[in-house]
Deep mutational scan, measured.
Amino acid sequence: ATNIVSKVKWYNSTKNFGFIEQDNGGKDVFVHKSAVDAAGLHSLEEGQDVIFDLEEKQGKAYAVNLRIK
């Protein structure tokens, strides 16, 4: 899926990962520091509106092509 609009559930800049809620009630989506860095960001804030693409690797959903709404 591409261009999903949602909100950051939480992000831990010390552990370099977090999760984004899915508005459709699906499972929370993992977001890694590499996606945050690629977006030119230093961190994410809880409740922040984001747009991302969903990529599945080894049966897990990852946020990629992250951008701020």
Rank of each mutant, 00 (worst) to 15 (best):
Q48P: 02
G47L: 04
A38Q: 10
N16Q: 13
G59F: 05
G59H: 06
E46R: 15
E21W: 15
I20D: 01
V5I: 12
G18W: 04
Y11H: 01
E56D: 08
I68R: 06
F30Q: 02
V8L: 03
V31H: 02
V50Y: 03
N24C: 11
N16D: 05
K60R: 13
L44E: 00
K69N: 12
W10P: 00
D23K: 14
D37T: 14
V29G: 00
L41G: 05
E55P: 00
D37I: 15
T14V: 13
L66M: 03
T2Q: 12
L54T: 05
D53W: 05
Y62A: 08
T2P: 07
F30M: 04
Q58M: 13
E46G: 14
A63M: 02
V8E: 00
N24V: 10
G40H: 08
S13M: 11
I51D: 04
Q22N: 14
E46K: 15
V8C: 02
N16F: 09
V64G: 04
G47Y: 05
V50Q: 01
G18D: 00
A39W: 03
F52L: 03
G47R: 06
D53G: 02
N16Y: 08
A35P: 01
V8P: 00
E45R: 13
I4Y: 06
E46P: 15
K33E: 03
I4D: 04
F17I: 04
I68T: 11
A1E: 10
N3H: 09
Q58E: 14
V36N: 00
V29H: 08
K15M: 14
H42G: 11
S6M: 06
G40I: 04
I4G: 06
T2F: 13
G25M: 09
Q58D: 15
N24K: 12
K69P: 14
G40C: 09
A63Y: 02
K27D: 09
K57Y: 13
A1G: 12
K60L: 10
A61D: 08
N12H: 08
A39E: 01
K60T: 07
N3A: 09
D23T: 15
S6C: 07
L54R: 08
D49R: 13
K57D: 09
L41S: 05
I20Y: 01
V29Y: 12
G40L: 06
L54Q: 04
G40W: 05
S6D: 02
G25C: 10
E55G: 06
D53L: 04
A38F: 07
F30I: 04
L41W: 11
K69Q: 12
V36Q: 00
K33I: 07
I51F: 07
K7S: 05
K7I: 07
A35E: 10
I51T: 10
D23Q: 15
A61L: 14
G25R: 09
H32P: 04
D49H: 14
F30T: 01
K60G: 07
K57H: 12
A38K: 12
Q48N: 06
Q22H: 14
F30Y: 07
V8W: 00
E21I: 15
H32R: 04
A63H: 02
V50R: 02
F30S: 01
E21N: 11
H42R: 13
N3C: 11
E21R: 14
Q22R: 14
E55V: 15
E56F: 15
N12E: 06
G40E: 07
K15R: 12
G25Y: 09
E45Q: 13
Q58P: 06
W10R: 03
I68Q: 07
I20F: 09
F30P: 01
K27Y: 09
S13L: 10
V64F: 05
A61H: 13
E56S: 11
T2G: 07
K15I: 11
D23V: 15
A1N: 13
A1Y: 12
V31R: 00
W10V: 01
F30G: 00
L41V: 08
F30N: 00
A63V: 06
S43W: 13
L54A: 02
S34I: 09
K69Y: 13
N16P: 02
A39M: 06
A39C: 04
G25D: 09
N24R: 11
D28Q: 07
Y11C: 03
K7E: 02
I68G: 06
V31Q: 00
V29K: 02
S43Y: 13
V36T: 02
V8Y: 00
H32M: 05
F17T: 00
V8M: 03
K27E: 09
K33Y: 08
R67K: 09
K15N: 06
N16E: 09
A1C: 13
V31A: 00
L44N: 00
V64E: 05
A39Q: 03
L41T: 05
S34H: 09
I68Y: 07
W10Q: 02
L44W: 02
D53R: 03
G59T: 04
Y11D: 02
G18I: 03
L54S: 03
K57Q: 10
L44V: 04
K15E: 05
H32S: 07
A61W: 15
A35R: 04
D49V: 15
K27W: 08
S43P: 08
Y62G: 05
G26L: 11
V36Y: 02
Q58R: 12
G26H: 10
S34K: 10
D23F: 15
L44H: 01
N65D: 03
Q22W: 15
G40M: 07
F52S: 01
K9D: 00
D53I: 04
N65Y: 03
D49C: 15
Y11I: 02
K60H: 09
A35S: 09
N3G: 10
K69I: 15
V36F: 05
T2D: 08
D28E: 08
S43G: 13
G40Q: 07
V5D: 06
E56C: 14
H32Q: 04
A35H: 06
G18H: 01
L41Y: 10
R67G: 04
N12A: 07
E46V: 14
N16H: 14
Q48D: 09
D49N: 11
Q22F: 15
G40D: 06
V64A: 07
I4H: 07
A39S: 10
G25W: 08
Y11W: 10
N16T: 07
S6W: 08
D37S: 13
N24Q: 11
K57G: 08
G18P: 01
K69G: 12
V36G: 01
D49Y: 15
T14I: 13
K57L: 09
V31N: 01
F17P: 00
Y62N: 08
H32G: 07
E46F: 10
N12V: 06
K7D: 01
N12L: 07
E45A: 12
F52I: 07
Q48I: 09
Y11R: 00
N65W: 01
L44T: 00
S43M: 12
Q48T: 09
Q58C: 15
G47T: 03
N65F: 03
I68L: 12
G18L: 03
D23H: 14
T14S: 13
K60V: 08
E21A: 14
Q48S: 08
A63N: 03
K69H: 13
E46H: 14
I68M: 09
S43T: 14
V31S: 00
E55F: 14
S34E: 07
N24F: 11
R67P: 03
Q58T: 08
H32T: 05
T2L: 13
V36S: 01
K15Y: 11
K33T: 04
F52A: 01
K33D: 02
V64P: 03
K9G: 02
V31D: 00
F52V: 04
Y11P: 01
N24Y: 11
A1L: 13
